[in-house]
Simulated assay, not measured.
Amino acid sequence: MRFDSPEAFAAALADLPGPDAAVRDAASARQAQLTKPAGSLGRLEEIALFMAGWQGKARPSLDRARAVIFAGNHGVTRHGVSAFPADVTVQMVANFEAGGAAINQLAREAGLDLHIVALDLDNPTADFTDGPAMRADECLNALNRGAEMVDADLDLLAVGEMGIGNSTAAAALCARSLGGDVRDWVGPGTGLDATGVAHKVAVIKRALAFHAGAPHDAFETLRRLGGREIAAIAGAVLAARHARVPVMLDGFIACAALAPLVAQQPSLAEHCLAGHCSAEPGHRRLLHQFSLTPLLQLGMRLGEGSGAAVAVPIVRAALATHNGMATFAEASVSGKL
Rank of each mutant, 00 (worst) to 15 (best):
G179I: 11
D151Y: 13
A234D: 08
G163L: 09
L208G: 05
E220S: 15
H276K: 10
A259K: 01
V245C: 07
C174Q: 09
V197G: 00
A236F: 09
W185H: 13
I233T: 06
C174E: 04
L157R: 03
V182F: 01
P215H: 08
G189P: 11
L156E: 02
A194D: 15
A158S: 14
V186Y: 07
I230H: 09
I204H: 01
V237S: 00
D250Q: 06
K205A: 11
A236L: 11
H242Q: 02
H199M: 06
E270A: 14
L238R: 05
G196Y: 00
V150T: 06
D155G: 09
G275C: 10
R228W: 12
A214F: 08
D217A: 11
A279S: 14
K205R: 15
A202P: 12
A207T: 07
D151S: 15
A202Y: 07
A239N: 06
S177T: 11
C277S: 15
T190P: 10
C174Y: 08
D153W: 05
P246M: 08
C272K: 00
F210G: 03
R224C: 15
S267V: 14
E270S: 13
G227E: 05
G196D: 01
Q264H: 05
R223T: 09
R183K: 14
A207V: 05
P281Y: 09
D181I: 10
D181C: 10
A152N: 12
A209T: 15
H199T: 05
G165D: 02
C272G: 02
H242G: 03
R228Q: 13
H211F: 07
C174S: 11
C277N: 14
T190A: 15
A257S: 15
G196H: 00
A212M: 08
L156F: 05
V237K: 01
D217N: 14
R241D: 04
H211V: 04
L192R: 00
P188G: 12
G251F: 00
V197F: 00
W185I: 07
A256N: 07
A279R: 15
G275W: 03
A198N: 13
Q265K: 12
